[in-house]
Simulated assay, not measured.
Amino acid sequence: MEQLSPDLEGYCGVVSVRRGDEVLGEWSLGLADRTAGVANTVRTRFGLASGTKTFTAVTALSLVGEGALSLDTTARRILGDDLPLIADDVTIDHLLTHTSGIGDYLDEEIDGLAPLAVPVQQLDSTPAYLPLLDGFPTKFPAGERFSYCNGGYVVLAVIAERVSGTPFADLVSQRVFEPARMTASGFPRSDLLPPGTATGYEENGRTNVFELPVVGSGDGGAHSTVGDLHRFWRALLAGRIIAPALVDLLIEPVTADAGDGLAYGRGVWLDGDDLTMAGGDHGVTAVSRHDARTSTTVSGLANVMVPTFARTKALMESVRARDVGGLS
């Protein structure tokens, strides 16, 4: 039977196609650690950049499910006097759907790769992000339109910590990674990566350690593997992480066209039939797309910045064009 053949030109990372309990194809290329000469493998952990937002949204919805928050809870109610420029009517749902209108510390409508305004080593916990988030005027009234907002998802992490009494990384582990059996996933320090984790590299060959927060938060910094991402999608849609009604909220197309023909739900991009998490930053590229009808996941994780979104889309379309039930 004809084998799948993805576009791997210039790729450095892992590309995976899994359906149910089957691995339909996996390819690993390049080095996870150039100094030590360690190759990427299908078990290598990679940074997810903004793919983390999907986990943040699921965590927030889990708190909604137990009544600690509601979609209508205002950020101000939880923040108190912190971040005073966030408008009083901004809700959890506005933050989840990128319709809050709050000013963004890393505004991708201006420059998504701009240097951070504080030394990255100071960003070692979610509360440490508060000075970075402060001082940005409102861009537009809450609910007016979609505008992708990194800072909004860190605000969600701050709120989740406060209402749960649990550090955000631990909260995601307890509420997402553990029920999904994502044993290789977490929020490692960038200056103390665990074995089996890819180092991110910039185009000049240097690592990304001086470009990204030392510990991630609600908008980025989680690390995972292609296997764990497939487990995540399957557990999510089986109702093992949050209740089915909350899953419906997560994947509901709130914004029909958020740009490039993509719809957006609450922490999930909707690309045709694919539920999609995606992220890109200095030395990080991550896309995982899942077809719920066939339980097929196509993931592309890289430790360099390389075009991945279109590649995973083309590979998923190639899978759909075949009878892949017998592929292995």
Rank of each mutant, 00 (worst) to 15 (best):
Y148T: 04
L96Q: 02
G261I: 01
D7G: 08
R266T: 06
T285F: 12
G186P: 08
D170E: 15
A286D: 13
Y11V: 12
D89M: 03
T41Y: 08
P6E: 07
A235C: 10
G280K: 03
D219F: 10
S50Q: 04
L237R: 05
M277G: 08
P307Y: 03
L193G: 11
I110F: 13
G101S: 08
D191N: 09
M277C: 11
M277F: 07
T276R: 05
D191F: 07
R266Y: 11
D107M: 02
Y153E: 09
M182E: 12
S318K: 05
T297Q: 10
G227Y: 15
L301K: 00
M305K: 06
D33A: 05
L171R: 00
I86N: 12
V90M: 06
V17H: 13
I86V: 15
V209W: 13
P141T: 03
L123V: 08
R43F: 07
G283W: 12
A286G: 11
M1R: 13
Y148F: 11
L106M: 05
T73K: 04
D93Y: 06
G325C: 08
E203P: 00
S16H: 10
G112R: 04
H98L: 03
G20D: 14
L250F: 14
G37F: 14
D228V: 00
T56L: 13
P253F: 00
L193Y: 15
V226N: 05
Q3V: 11
D33F: 06
L212I: 14
A222D: 09
R162E: 15
G112W: 08
R145Q: 09
M277D: 06
Y264K: 07
L156F: 04
T276K: 02
L31C: 00
D191G: 09
H290L: 07
D291A: 13
A169Y: 11
A39K: 02
V298N: 13
L250P: 14
A184N: 08
D93Q: 11
L85E: 15
L116G: 01
L236R: 00
V298P: 06
A114K: 03
V304L: 14
R19L: 03
G216P: 00
A39Y: 02
I251W: 04
L262I: 04
D260F: 11
E203S: 07
G267M: 08
L83D: 08
T285H: 12
P194T: 05
L61I: 01
